[in-house]
Design a binder for these strands. Structure first.
Length: 485
RNA sequence: GGCGCCGUACCCAAGUGGUAAGGGAGAGGUCUGCAAAACCUUUAUGCGACGGUUCGAAUCCGCCCGGCGCCUCCA
């Protein structure tokens, strides 16, 4: 089977064929850095993270570009209102660039915690003003844009295919339905490539049309094409950006180059909170830094991957708690496999005889088939749990050997680790030595003696005490193991 | 008003023509000094309602009900 991707452009799954054999150029709309990241960012970037991870797993040399928007988004309409970053800088009483810097760091901090692999290039809009001006100038020269009072607008009427992504025919759009029509525009649907800046506007640059700043949509076109070429393989983003953002990107890019802009458009769905849209206006935005206080980042990641990227994800404590338990179950098995490997590695007895049969190849195949089908991570995780059950059975039995366990460990590392990114780098081992671990091991030995003498009150007290310290004791046939909660 | 999505057990969630994955929770059992973990069994003749197409539909078509999103900044 081969990789199939749901392409918004054609509204169906298509077999993935890169423009250049063995290579993938991919761009994803990044965050506007004027506040801490929220769970919506988490869903989006975790989703695209497994797409990048899987493409790389399949052997594609993947160049992943994700912008940082540090200027240009306005609070109301795309072309009106206040600059959000400028607004935040006034509120925090710091320079806009300081706002941008601190929230950019915050963003990467959160994404790192979620195990999101960093983009190869994270271009900033303010670092590409020249490219944006150049593109606007080119579009004027080619007759697709016009200047009016120091601002530059894209003339939507000049691009017949406008609306092909979002399937909104221009003539059916109600002009000024909710936003007052800008008098400078020839057509209400025209959008700004460049905006004239007032004197008090802090972030502004010199241009052929006077002092100003770039329009919202321009940065993504200018930066993606700069690093990925005039036509590239994949462009991703949130569904809410299909219109107008991505539509405008297509219009300005294809008019500028005369070529197709993007081959596959991938859109991820939104997060809801208690069934309601999450948004600033509703005041129900959940920041990641807050969410992480209650759920570890990898639980959040696992929770996200347990639903498909094109489905909405409802963020509730009940659902998170369920995911948390399931995740722990999966991790427990991986931990036990590793413990067993260390233990067997040290012992003389390799227990080679009668090794149970485990169809690891079959599990791997099922996993990959799920991922091939438009990155169906929930189904892939289902396969992992099927495998889990059989591995637990092997672990509970007396028949296993190092070779089999190493193969099992390899599969977990490959599928759950490399592809899904849900196994932490550091998974404590109860067998490995080291200061605190030795101490815990010593306490467990004391308890073993108490148990040998049937001093149940004492042994239970030790168990409870360790539990209160976050250390869980498990008595097994061949001894006691422990793990941190 | 225009465009679009969704409705699967108590909760979360795959499945898009061949007879309901997986996780959580619940019940019973095995193991255990007791726990915990793990394993086994069990929990939707049923996939919002009603019609239709088909040998066969959760899956396709129609209609209705309910929820949500976009059209305005948002991942």
């Amino acid at each position: 089977m081969s990789l199939n991707i749901y392409n918004t452009l054609v509204r169906q799954k298509e077999e993935f064929k890169p423009l250049v054999e063995g290579r993938v150029n991919m761009y994803v709309c990044g965050p506007t850095v004027y506040g801490h990241s929220h769970i919506g960012h988490a869903k989006s970037y975790v989703s695209f993270d497994i797409i990048v991870r899987y493409l790389r797993y399949l052997g594609y040399k993947t160049l992943y570009v994700q912008n940082i928007t540090d200027v240009g988004h306005l609070t109301d309409d795309a072309d009106e209102g206040e600059d959000k970053i400028a607004k935040q800088s006034k509120k925090d009483r710091v320079h806009p660039m300081q706002v941008v810097e601190s929230y950019t760091r915050s963003y990467f901090e959160d994404m790192d915690a979620l195990g999101v692999v960093r983009p190869d290039i994270s271009p900033r809009a303010t670092g590409h003003i020249i490219e944006q001006i150049e593109m606007a100038r080119d579009l004027i020269k080619k007759g697709f844009a016009y200047e009016k009072n120091g601002s530059v607008y894209f003339n939507v009427a000049k691009f017949k295919e406008y609306g092909k992504l979002s399937r909104r025919p221009l003539e059916e759009m109600e002009a000024g339905a909710r936003v007052e029509v800008n008098k400078e525009k020839r057509n209400p649907a025209d959008f700004a490539l460049w905006k004239k800046a007032d004197a008090e506007h802090i972030m502004q640059w010199e241009s052929p049309w006077g002092m100003g700043f770039p329009g919202w949509h321009l940065e993504c076109s200018a930066m993606s094409m700069k690093y990925l070429g005039e036509t590239f393989d994949i462009h991703g983003g949130g569904m809410e950006n299909q219109f107008p953002h991505h539509e405008c990107e297509i219009a300005q890019s294809e008019c500028s180059t005369g070529k197709q802009f993007v081959k596959y458009w991938i859109h991820n769905n939104m997060v809801t909170v208690g069934g309601q849209k999450m948004g600033k206006s509703l005041g129900n935005v959940i920041n990641l830094k807050d969410a992480f206080k209650k759920y570890t980042p990898l639980v959040v990641r696992f929770f996200i991957l347990q639903s498909h990227y094109r489905s909405t994800l409802d963020f509730t404590n009940e659902a998170l708690d369920g995911a948390s338990k399931g995740y722990e179950k999966l991790l427990n098995t991986v931990r036990n496999v590793r413990n067993e490997i260390e233990k067997l590695g040290k012992s003389e007895n390799q227990k080679n005889e009668d090794v149970p049969f485990l169809d690891l190849t079959g599990f791997k195949k099922a996993f990959l088939e799920a991922m091939d089908d438009d990155f169906n991570s929930p189904q892939a995780i289902g396969v992992l749990f099927d495998l889990n059950r059989e591995v637990n059975t092997v672990l509970a039995g007396s028949k296993s050997n190092l070779k089999l366990l190493n193969e099992i460990n390899g599969i977990y590392n490959e599928l759950a680790g490399t592809v899904l990114g849900i196994i932490p780098d550091q998974l404590e081992s109860a067998v490995a030595g080291g200061g605190e671990n030795d101490l815990i091991q010593f306490i467990i030995e004391l308890r073993a003696e108490a148990r040998a003498q049937k001093l149940w009150v004492m042994s239970d007290k030790i168990r409870d005490g360790l539990k209160n310290l976050g250390i869980v004791i498990e008595d097994k046939k061949d001894g006691t193991t422990w793990r941190r909660e």
